[in-house]
Amino acid sequence: MITTTVLLSGCDSKEDVNFKVEQGYALGTTYSIKYEVSGDTVSLKKDIEAVFEVVNKSMSTYLPTSDISAINRGDSTVVVDEYFREVYLKAKDVWRKTDGFFDPTVGALINAWGFGPESAIKDMDEEEVDSLLEFTGFNKVFMSDDYRIIKENKNTFIDFNALAKGYTIDLIGRMFDEKGVENYLIELGGEILTKGNSPRTNKVKNWVVAIDSPLQEEKEQRVLIAKIQLKDKAMATSGNYRKFRVDEETGEHYVHIINPLTGYPQKSNVLSVSVVADICMVADAYATALMVMPLDAAKKLLKNTPEIEAYIISADKDGDLIEYRTKGFQELLID
């Protein structure tokens, strides 16, 4: 599962010179941040990089010295910081509300079935799946009163990648707010947080974001399927862009996802999900969860979760796209 690339766009007009752009590479992906400043010499790049540093130190599974790496090695003496605690609590909340379909401990199963960065296990059978399920499940991970992470099984591997990028964006937004920045757009790996107005002088002052079609080929010119306007909102898109498969017999488009409840891959014709929320960590987590959930269950969740709006793209057996939008998302669309 990957996060889609979004196109930041706006209406044709001259941009305000007081908007500054910072770009770079962090958390395994690229970022582009546009924010309004009081003069040409003002730069908050060091402050932005400081946010990346504290998140990596706390939650990067690629950094051996991070808190989460120590916890995954079985160190139960680590007292986690405020950043880890906030992400942990939101992950637990989404895990509960999605009945376990959102699960930060599913990484071992993803790798075992050959959908992750590590080598797959050959000849996966019921016995192997059952053994992996023994240490899979966020219900087997707890946080003590003194902020230590306790795992029922030492082999349980925690990975907050499904919401850490969104949380990092939120932290940068908080930093901007504290420094009095009133208008900004923060994009990290295709996930976005906006505040105030874009540097446009015409009628459309909100930030405009375009969503790619999930059926475009890698070398094709970018195909946009929707454009929405955002103000004081976050959006995250999760999908299997260019990862779908076509059944040779039926012609059906589908993707393989791992069901954390059964431990087995399952077919899904959901190709992408875009979620809008007040904060990016929430949008990020639910975009991942809705990709894993059966479509009927996803629609039910959306009806019972007013804090999010969503746009779900699936494909029928002929490869034609089927779109489902909540009412709130529909109101954000522009021509």
Rank of each mutant, 00 (worst) to 15 (best):
P214I: 11
V208W: 07
V246I: 15
N183Q: 08
K195C: 03
K219L: 08
L215N: 03
K227T: 05
V223Q: 15
K233H: 11
I225S: 14
Q221T: 14
H253G: 00
E252A: 14
I192L: 06
E191H: 04
L224R: 08
N202K: 15
S238D: 06
E191V: 02
G189K: 02
V181L: 11
Q221D: 15
E187K: 11
N240G: 15
R242M: 14
G251H: 07
V246Q: 14
K231Y: 01
E249G: 04
E249T: 09
A236N: 00
I228N: 02
E217D: 13
L185V: 11
G190D: 02
V209G: 01
D177W: 05
L185M: 08
P214V: 10
V246W: 12
I186K: 02
K233S: 13
G190N: 06
K179C: 09
A210I: 00
P214R: 11
K179I: 06
E218W: 09
G251K: 10
E217P: 03
N183V: 04
A226M: 06
E248A: 14
S238R: 07
A234T: 05
K205W: 03
K179Y: 14
N240F: 10
D177Q: 12
N240S: 13
G190T: 09
R222V: 11
S213R: 09
D177Y: 10
K219H: 03
K219I: 04
A236W: 00
